[in-house]
Amino acid sequence: NRLGIIYEIQGMKAVVLTSEGEFLIIRRRKDMKVGQQVSFENEDIYNV
């Protein structure tokens, strides 16, 4: 599992900021809110 803070939500995608200072786009889940810490898997990351 990886951890990140939700920075922005766009439709079915969420932008998270990881503890390494990396911004990633992941698959959104219904319970996500901006500012929330979430765990996610590598499979949830969109390749940009």
Score class of each variant (00 low, 15 high):
N1T: 14
N1S: 12
N1G: 11
R2P: 04
R2S: 07
R2E: 03
L3C: 06
G4W: 02
G4K: 00
G4H: 02
I5E: 04
I5C: 08
I6T: 01
Y7H: 09
E8I: 09
E8N: 08
I9Y: 03
I9N: 01
I9Q: 02
I9M: 12
I9T: 05
Q10T: 05
Q10F: 14
Q10H: 15
Q10K: 10
Q10I: 12
G11F: 11
G11S: 10
G11P: 10
G11W: 10
M12R: 14
M12P: 15
M12I: 08
K13R: 06
K13V: 04
K13Y: 11
K13C: 15
A14Q: 01
A14D: 00
A14H: 01
V15P: 00
V15L: 10
V15D: 01
V16A: 03
V16C: 07
L17E: 06
L17G: 04
L17Y: 12
L17R: 11
T18G: 03
T18A: 05
T18V: 06
T18H: 01
S19P: 09
S19W: 06
E20C: 10
E20Q: 07
G21A: 03
G21T: 02
G21W: 04
E22L: 07
E22N: 08
E22Q: 10
L24H: 05
I25V: 14
I25G: 05
I25P: 05
I25R: 06
I26L: 07
I26M: 02
I26E: 00
R27N: 14
R27A: 12
R27F: 14
R27S: 11
R28P: 09
R28H: 15
R29A: 10
K30N: 15
K30Y: 07
M32D: 07
M32H: 15
K33V: 06
V34E: 03
V34A: 06
V34S: 02
G35I: 00
G35S: 03
Q36C: 13
Q36D: 05
Q36H: 12
Q36G: 02
Q36M: 14
Q36T: 06
Q37F: 09
Q37C: 08
Q37D: 05
S39R: 09
S39W: 07
S39Q: 10
S39G: 03
F40G: 01
F40K: 01
E41D: 09
E41A: 12
N42I: 10
N42W: 12
E43C: 09
D44E: 07
I45G: 06
Y46D: 14
Y46H: 09
V48Y: 03
V48H: 11
